[in-house]
Simulated assay, not measured.
Amino acid sequence: MSEMLKAFKLVAPYIKDLMVDDVAVTITDTEKYIKFIRGEKIPQMVKAEKFLRALL
């Protein structure tokens, strides 16, 4: 995992807290989901380590 992705994984919860509206934060690389921080009303749609779908 790149240093940039490690940094975003570390600050993801704080990014969510900085927003005025309810948001979810999703971090991915080019192959899989790395981290998902759900919002208060936004359901968790993915799980970490699950692969992204191929684009058609």
Rank of each mutant, 00 (worst) to 15 (best):
F36G: 00
I34L: 14
F36H: 10
T26E: 03
R53K: 09
E31D: 11
L56G: 13
E40N: 12
G39V: 01
T28H: 05
F51S: 07
V46I: 05
P43F: 06
D29N: 07
E40K: 11
T28D: 04
Y33P: 04
M19C: 13
D17V: 05
T28Y: 02
D17R: 13
K6W: 06
D17Q: 15
T30R: 10
K41H: 05
A12N: 00
S2K: 08
K9V: 10
V46M: 00
R38Q: 06
E31H: 13
D22F: 02
V11N: 13
L5M: 14
L56Q: 13
L55K: 09
P13V: 00
V25W: 02
K32L: 02
Y33K: 09
V11Y: 15
T28I: 07
K35S: 07
V11H: 10
S2R: 11
Y14W: 08
A12S: 06
L56A: 15
M19K: 10
L55V: 10
I15A: 12
P43M: 02
L18D: 15
L5T: 11
K41S: 04
K9T: 14
P13L: 01
V46H: 00
A24V: 01
K16R: 13
L55H: 10
Y14K: 14
V46T: 01
T28Q: 07
I34V: 13
S2Y: 10
F51W: 06
E31S: 15
L18N: 12
A12M: 01
V11W: 14
L18Y: 10
Q44M: 08
K47E: 09
S2C: 13
